[in-house]
Design a protein around this nucleic acid. Structure first.
Lengths: 229, 229
DNA sequence: CATGGTTATTGTCATTCTAACACCAATTAG
DNA sequence: CTAATTGGTGTTAGAATGACAATAACCATG
C-alpha cells in the first residue's frame, strides 16, 4: 500500500450526546450496541459519516434516525482522535451534543442500536470506546453554554414554570441556587412571556406558566445584550 | 468500490492558527503554499494526520516543523468537515490554535511551505480553503479563553510590563481598557512576581518588569480560584 | 368544611464589584 | 534645562450580588 493510500485508510464518525430533562434529573439517551465491537455495551449514538455528507448533517441524521426529531439544538464539541480509540481501525469521531424536549422523543428503530434508553447522567457506568470521556467533555461544554446563552429552554416544554427552569439549571450546573435571586435575575431579563396560566392538578399552590420569547431575545442581542446566569 | 471502501476514501488533517504578539498587534503565522491546490496562496500551516498519529501529536508536529518549538500552548478548537472544503477529495480538518512567544520563533523549512510570515490579524486577505472561517473561529475561542484562564502570558516574553500585558488584552479583545482598573484587577490576583527590575533603554520613565507565577496560580486554582479578566 | 401539607411568590439590606475619572513621577532627546 | 513621553497611583458613585423568611394558593384528608 502506498503512503498516500494509507492516509486514506481511515474513517470518521460522529457521536451525539443527546441530553434530556424530565423535571428532576439530567438525562442522556444511550444505545445498546447491536454490532461488534462492544456488542451489547451501552454507547453514545453515532455512525460513520457518509462520503458525501457534511459533519453537521451526519450528526442530524444520527439524531433523526434515533428519535425522529429534526431541527433541534445541536452543537459540535470536539474531535476525538487517539490512534487506538477504535479497535477495528483508525476512526476519529466528532462529538456533538443536542438538547431535546424529552416528551418529544419517540423510539425509532435505528440500524446501529439494539435498544435505546434514557440514563440518569449521574448513574452512567462504563461505556463503549472512549464515550465516557466524550460525555464528560460535552457536559463541561453544556455547563458553560447554558450560562451564556438561553439554550436551557431547548430542554423544557414550551410552557414551563420558574421552578422547573431553576431545577434544570441546578441539575446541569450540579449546584443549588437561591430561589429568590434566581427568579429576580431571570425575570429582570424580560425574556419570559407570562402566559397568565397556571399549573393544573397539583396538590399545592399552582405555579404560573411562562414561555421563552425568542423574538425578544434576538432583538436584545442585536442591541448588545448578552444572556448571563 | 464497495461502500465500506468508500468510507475509507477520506483523510483528515490538522490546521494550526499560530498566534503571536509583538507589543502592538496580534499576529498570525501563515505559510505560502508550495503545492497544489492553492499553490502560492497564503494558508494556515497544516498537514495530513499520519495513520499512527494522535491528533494532538499531529498538531504539535506541524508547529515544530514550522517553528522548531515544542511544548507550547496548543488547544483544539473545532472540526471543519464540509464535503467540498478540499478540492481534491474528502478531507476534514481539525483546527487548533497555539500561542507562542514571537521572539522564540525561528524560521524552519517545512515541506508544506514555500515561505512563512507573520501577518497582522487585522490585515489578512483571502486564504486558501476555508481558512478564513477557521481563523475567525479560533479568534473567537481565544477571546473567551484569554478572559477565563491565564493563557495570555504564553504570548509574552518571560519578563513583561503591565502596559504590555494590557496591550495584549486590548489587541485580542479588540477593545480599549482603563489603565487603572486593569492594573488594579491584575495585581489584586497576586499572580505576578515583581522582579524589582525596570526596562532599559527606553526614552521615558521605565516600567517595572513582572513575571507570571504559575506555581501560585496552580495553588490558587486548587483552592477554588478562577482567573477572570 | 376545617386543618394540615406542600409549593409559589415576593422585597430588603448589607456587601461587593464595576466603571469613570486626572495628576504627578521618571526618564531620554535635543 | 526643557520638552516629550510613558509609568504609576486612589476615590467615589452606582450597580450587581447574595443572604435571608413570611404569606398565599391550592389539594388531600378527616
Amino acid at each position: 500500500m502506498s503512503e498516500v493510500e494509507s492516509f486514506f485508510k481511515s474513517a470518521f464518525s460522529v457521536d451525539n450526546v443527546i441530553f434530556g430533562f424530565d423535571g428532576g434529573d439530567l438525562k442522556v439517551l444511550l444505545i445498546q450496541r447491536g454490532a461488534a465491537p462492544y456488542r451489547g455495551k451501552w454507547a453514545l449514538p453515532g455512525d460513520l459519516v457518509y462520503p458525501n455528507e457534511d459533519l453537521d448533517t451526519a450528526a442530524e441524521r444520527v439524531l433523526e434516525q434515533l428519535t425522529g426529531l429534526r431541527g433541534v439544538y445541536l452543537e459540535q464539541v470536539k474531535a476525538f482522535g487517539a490512534v487506538d480509540r477504535h479497535p477495528l481501525g483508525r476512526v476519529i469521531t466528532i462529538a456533538y451534543y443536542s438538547l431535546i424536549k424529552i416528551d418529544d422523543y419517540a423510539v425509532t428503530p435505528a440500524s446501529f442500536a439494539q435498544s435505546a434508553r434514557w440514563h440518569d447522567f449521574a448513574h452512567i457506568g462504563e461505556l463503549a470506546f472512549d464515550h465516557n470521556e466524550i460525555l464528560e467533555t460535552c457536559l463541561k461544554q453544556l455547563k458553560h453554554k447554558v450560562r451564556m446563552a438561553p439554550v436551557g429552554f431547548e430542554l423544557l416544554p414550551p410552557k414551563f414554570t420558574l421552578t422547573e427552569l431553576q431545577q434544570l439549571y441546578e441539575s446541569i450546573l450540579e449546584t443549588e441556587l437561591d430561589k429568590r435571586n434566581f427568579r429576580k435575575k431571570i425575570l429582570s431579563m424580560n425574556l419570559l412571556i407570562d402566559l397568565n396560566e397556571v399549573q393544573e392538578g397539583v396538590a399545592h399552590r399552582p405555579a404560573k406558566l411562562y414561555q421563552f420569547d425568542r423574538v425578544k431575545y434576538e432583538q436584545f442581542v442585536g442591541e448588545g445584550f448578552t444572556f448571563d446566569v
